[in-house]
Nucleic acid binder design. Structure first.
Length: 771
DNA sequence: TTGAGAAATCCAGCTTTGCACGTC
DNA sequence: CGACGTGCTTTGCTGGATTTCTCA
């Protein structure tokens, strides 16, 4: 049998190595033995052909399930299973050739023989199992790798963006509420007792002193107020923390539970005020009280919050492992096969899993639960809430954080490193006493353009508008000088941001661009190098310098065809800025070079002017119609009438017209032109309008006529039926008593039986006969 | 520890002026 | 026999984005 296979299915055989052909019988066992020995888990020459790859894949896929079978302690069962699997394998490969069938048989036999070898030759079944399980590691590891690499789907990405936005809005409102609570008179009155009169006077320096003296006095006052507050306020519960995406509902609930276990919740202003009297709570609460404290001393104070919304993307690291471990445990207990999966998983996935689990998602929650007795929970060493006090003397807002960083006027101390699992700075919003708010992120971030911006909605489509609109709600009715000054300060700070020193920060950077990040349809022109970025370790032999360009010199380019679709024409004599390999079937020219498409920038094009309408003659393209992709493509002296009856009207008028192609539909394999009305000479516009009105009237009339006809038909049917019924009734009376009884009873039924038949369709068939 | 680069994977965008066949 | 209507080849392919892993 095997021999036959070898000779007949020559093709298949060819692909195999000669050696493998010779020892076909022993091949499988040999391979398996090798595998068992864990020497060459995936011996390449064992299955070496393109076709075989398919088969191998099947087998490897099956493989993991097989060893578990053997681990059921029943070798006979194992064999049966293998046989079944062999058949499967067979089934898979024959798709290509019939001779494969023979092949399969070979396979089968080999496998069963191998099974025999396994059960017979291997002395200890347990050993066998072990070794088999080990061999399986390789494929499984691969499979799991692929699974874990699965990127999030587009739908989920959209969902995340939406949730991110909603979360932002909620957080904004949350801070606003707290900000307004800080204005409470009772609260301020209570807090004010904390401040000695001396400090209050420091915070409000006399106006007759020189400016710089007043300024230092004010700062001194802030300093002392912070110290006092720090001494009085006790941090007893956690504040807001950076959130992460959870994989499933279970994780969410779990997390929610653990958060709610020790989080401070103020359901109302009264709660808030009451807790304020204790002077204890979260660091966030502390910052809010400090804000109220400063306001009580007539200091203009802003409540500042680094909003912690759910991130736009990422966090897959702490999602997949959780899921995987979960599912694995389930399968483990459920089925023999998975037993091996289970045994396997500790060996190869476990090392990485705990590490991942220890990442953001679970760590904050687990310890929280466990440590409910001991408040050793971890929190970021950077605040989420702090205060900005307005130094009138220098017209500047001074950041003050009495509790966490214990800093004053040190804006650079607030940004946590991106690796901080508990705090991420992406939006910093400052709320003033008058309930207005401003985005002051730029004051606190070191690399807004290069890094922070990528965490914000600005990276999404129309994200910038969205954020501006969201903040518009909190905008002041009119801006004061100091607001303008602050805005320009923030802008200039961003503009002064140094050039990134690594490649990835250049990606999507608003000011700089690298050639390597250009899209297919982008080009840098003119090529003005404005800097260099070093690749590789500085000083190492691999170090290379890559030129940096302005983002404003990056242009979108299109092919002449594409520009034509937009109603633009490449100017005469313009040379393409770029050439890209043509899309579609990759065919080589006679020269052996792939076809290329020339690309032009917007500035190289002008609005396309079609040939004009002359003497009522409308110009046409090669297809006998006219391209009107944009309104500007209507020829001079012509007019586009996008009416479905326009062609008919033009024919009635006997004037020249051209069908207008406005686009293409791609329902079929080939795009088909979409026609929308016609183009006629301008002078015929009025006539066309009249004719079209007439046609519309006619159409309306026709519709109404059809309706009347339908009504009349219905009446006709109805009358006819009445007549039939009458006739039948007459027969019944003539026919005597018995008939009469029947008639009365069955009349209804008869009619009942008639009616469905005479319903719309069939009634039509019935009537002509009766006529 | 950080970042560059490779690999794996999915998705969006591009395609861009029919045709065969059946019925009336 | 011709006009007309309907349904299907539906394609793929590729670039870009994202994520993870490895290595320097």
């Amino acid at each position: 049998m095997r021999r036959t296979a070898a000779t007949t299915s020559g093709k298949r055989r060819m692909t195999r190595t000669g050696a493998s052909r010779q020892c076909e019988d022993q091949e499988m066992p040999a391979v398996y033995q090798e595998m068992l020995a864990e020497a060459e888990a995936r011996d390449p020459h064992a299955f070496d052909s393109t076709r075989q790859i398919k088969r191998r894949r099947v087998q490897t896929a099956d493989a993991p399930s097989r060893p578990p079978g053997s681990s059921t302690n029943d070798t006979r069962e194992t064999r049966g299973e293998e046989a079944a699997q062999a058949v499967q394998t067979v089934y898979d490969s024959p798709s290509s050739e019939e001779s494969d069938m023979e092949w399969e048989e070979v396979d089968l036999e080999q496998k069963s023989s191998r099974a025999g070898v396994l059960s017979g030759s291997s002395p200890a079944a347990g050993q066998d199992e072990d070794s088999i399980q080990i061999t399986l590691d390789a494929p499984t590891a691969q499979r799991q790798k692929t699974v874990s690499r699965k990127p999030i789907s587009n739908a989920e990405r959209k969902l995340r963006l939406d949730i991110h936005k909603v979360h932002l809005l909620c957080l904004l409102h949350h801070v606003q509420i707290r900000n307004l609570w800080c204005n409470d008179d009772h609260l301020q009155g209570f807090l004010k007792q904390m401040l000695p009169r001396r400090i209050i006077s420091l915070l409000n320096p006399p106006e007759d002193k020189p400016q710089h003296v007043r300024s230092t006095t004010f700062v001194d006052g802030l300093n002392q107020a912070s110290e006092i507050f720090l001494r009085r306020f006790r941090i007893t519960s956690p504040g807001i923390q950076r959130p992460h995406w959870a994989e499933n509902l279970e994780a969410v609930t779990h997390k929610a539970e653990s958060i709610m276990a020790d989080t401070e919740v103020f359901l109302s202003k009264d709660d808030f005020l009451e807790q304020a009297r204790n002077l204890r709570g979260s660091r966030d609460f502390g910052a809010q009280l400090f804000c109220a404290l400063l306001r009580s001393a007539a200091v203009e104070a802003r409540l500042v919050c680094s909003l912690q919304p759910l991130p736009l993307s990422g966090a897959v690291t702490d999602r997949t492992p959780a899921k995987k471990s979960h599912s694995q445990y389930i399968t483990t207990s459920s089925d023999d096969r998975e037993v091996s999966t289970d045994k396997r998983s500790p060996s190869d996935t476990a090392p990485s899993r705990p590490r991942r689990l220890a990442r953001p998602q679970l760590v904050p929650s687990r310890p929280r639960k466990v440590t409910s007795t001991r408040p050793a929970r971890r929190e970021s060493s950077y605040p989420v809430f702090w205060v900005e006090a307005f130094n009138e003397m220098v017209q500047k807002w001074i950041p003050v954080d009495p509790l966490v960083t214990k800093s004053l006027a040190k804006a650079f101390k607030f940004e946590p490193p991106s690796s901080d699992p508990y705090n991420c700075m992406s939006y910093v919003v400052a709320f003033e006493e008058d309930a207005s708010a401003r985005d002051v992120t730029r004051r606190y971030t070191k690399a807004f353009n290069a890094k922070t911006r990528k965490l914000r909605v600005e990276t999404s489509k129309n994200g910038e508008q969205w954020w501006l609109r969201a903040l518009q709600f909190y905008e002041k009715p009119f801006l004061e000088d100091r607001d303008i000054a602050e805005m320009s300060e923030l802008t200039s700070k961003t503009a002064a941001e140094p050039m990134p020193r690594n490649i990835q920060d250049f990606k999507d950077h608003p000011f700089y661009a690298l050639e390597r990040h250009l899209r297919r349809n982008e080009v840098i022109f003119p090529k003005r190098v404005i800097g260099q970025v070093s690749l590789g370790k500085s000083g190492s032999k691999h170090e290379k310098l890559e030129p940096v360009y302005r983002r404003s010199d990056v242009h979108t380019v299109r092919s002449a065809d594409k520009w034509y679709r937009l109603g633009r024409d490449v100017k005469l004599g313009e040379q393409p800025l770029k050439r890209v390999p043509a899309s579609g079937p990759r065919e080589l020219d006679d020269n052996g070079t792939a076809a290329e498409t020339a690309m032009y920038a917007l500035s190289q094009t002008e609005v396309y002017t079609p040939p004009p309408v002359v003497n009522g003659r409308v110009p046409r393209n090669g297809y006998g119609n006219l391209d009107i992709y944009v309104p500007s493509m209507v020829p001079p002296g012509g007019v586009h009438i996008p009416h479905p009856n326009a062609a008919q009207a033009a024919r009635i008028l006997g004037i020249d017209y051209a069908d207008a192609v406005t686009g293409f539909s791609f329902k079929g394999r080939h795009g088909t032109a979409v026609f929308e009305g016609v183009v006629v000479a301008e002078e015929c516009h009025d006539a066309m309008r009249e004719v079209l009105a007439g046609l519309d009237d006619q159409q309306a009339q026709a519709v109404s006529d059809a309706k009347s006809m339908e009504m009349l038909q219905l009446w006709k049917t109805f009358l006819l039926k009445l007549r039939i019924a009458e006739r039948v009734k007459a027969y019944a009376i003539e026919g005597g008593e018995a008939d009469g009884e029947v008639t009365d009873d069955e009349m209804a039924e008869m009619e009942g039986g008639f009616l469905p038949e005479s319903d719309p369709d069939e009634g039509g068939g019935f009537l002509p006969e009766s006529d």
